[in-house]
Design a protein around this nucleic acid. Structure first.
Length: 294
DNA sequence: CACTTGCCGTCTCGCATCTT
DNA sequence: AAGATGCGAGACGGCAAGTG
């Protein structure tokens, strides 16, 4: 008897090219994956995977079956979404987030998801966008809200929101109201996102392009730490003012008047199109609605 | 007659270990 | 290093007997 679980297992082994990776993806063990594939091959009386090399590869029949399996899984997902009461939709979405989202509208998103679909759980991990991208493409995340878009085959990017970056400082560190040049800004350490991030490289590039040597740029993977360091007058930060609205209102930070703007941060809800990611698509749509109201 | 309970066989899983 | 195999534990489902 062919069951969906074995077919789904076969789909993920075919996509990830690994029994171990599939076991992680499906929250089980490698022997269980091995047994499921063996059972499916036994049911069909055909060899679906070649195990000779380092990574399992599809046989000709395996390629043929994969096409049917993708359609079956997509249809199953479509059926469940069509006939199930939204409040009864069950499952877990592994959600990767850029820290900027955490500091802006993540609580609203989580609230909205739990209100509409109380049985969907979110497993949240926070990282820089470049790592989120890798995790998404390796199948470790179902959905990522990150600095996008990602250009890769079979990937969907939904635009979420765009945040301008400003130069921020503690009022006692910089108290002039005259527009500051890049040379002026370079007197202080610049604190911004982590070294692996796009904004970090844009800051570096900006000073390089304008031939301003010796600028000290502190990459920091923690946004709250960037804010803390800026309020403590350690340097000037280049982050979106939207994440420090309270600090700005309280006069703990100020936006510096400058002659040079940094590129805006554009966020997208990005997911890989697989036949079983309806819940991720659902959460991406909710994220889009929440982001629009910010 | 419908439902509950207990027993037993089967299935699936995880761990440890072997094989490639 | 990654997949296969063996073994024991726990979950689950079918069936028969008991109960109201």
């Amino acid at each position: 008897m062919i069951d969906f679980r074995n077919l789904e297992t076969f789909f993920w082994v075919a996509k990830l090219g690994s029994f171990r990776g599939t076991a992680e993806k499906l929250h089980t063990t490698q022997p269980a994956i091995s047994a499921r594939i063996a059972q499916l091959e036994d049911n069909l009386q055909i060899r679906l995977l070649n195990r000779e090399g380092r990574r399992p590869t599809l046989t000709v029949k395996g390629v043929e079956l994969l096409d049917y399996v993708e359609r079956l899984l997509a249809l199953r997902d479509e059926m469940v979404m069509a006939v199930t009461d939204p409040s009864a939709l069950k499952g877990m979405v592994r959600l990767g987030l850029s820290e900027t989202i955490v500091h802006t509208w993540l609580p609203r998103l989580v609230k909205e998801v739990y209100q509409r679909h109380p049985q969907i759980t979110l497993e949240i991990s926070v990282d820089v966008s470049v790592n989120l991208r890798d995790a998404l493409l390796e199948g470790q995340l179902d959905l990522a809200l990150l600095l996008g878009p990602i250009s890769a085959p079979n990937v969907t990017n939904l635009p979420l929101c765009t945040y301008p970056i400003a130069w921020l400082a503690a009022p006692d560190l910089v108290n002039t109201n005259a527009p500051l040049s890049l040379e002026d800004l370079a007197q202080w350490p610049i604190i911004t996102y982590a070294r692996a991030s796009r904004p970090y490289h844009q800051v570096i590039e900006l000073f390089k392009r304008n031939n301003i040597p010796g600028v000290r740029v502190f990459g920091n993977s923690s946004l709250s730490s960037i804010v803390r360091m800026t309020m403590d007058s350690i340097g000037i930060s280049a982050i979106p003012p939207t994440v420090v609205q309270e600090e700005l209102a309280a006069g703990k930070l100020r936006i510096l008047p400058t002659k040079t703007a940094l590129p805006d941060l554009m966020f997208t809800a990005t997911y890989v199109n697989t036949p079983d990611n309806s819940l991720a698509v659902l959460v991406a749509a909710i994220a889009q609605q929440v982001a629009e109201t910010v």
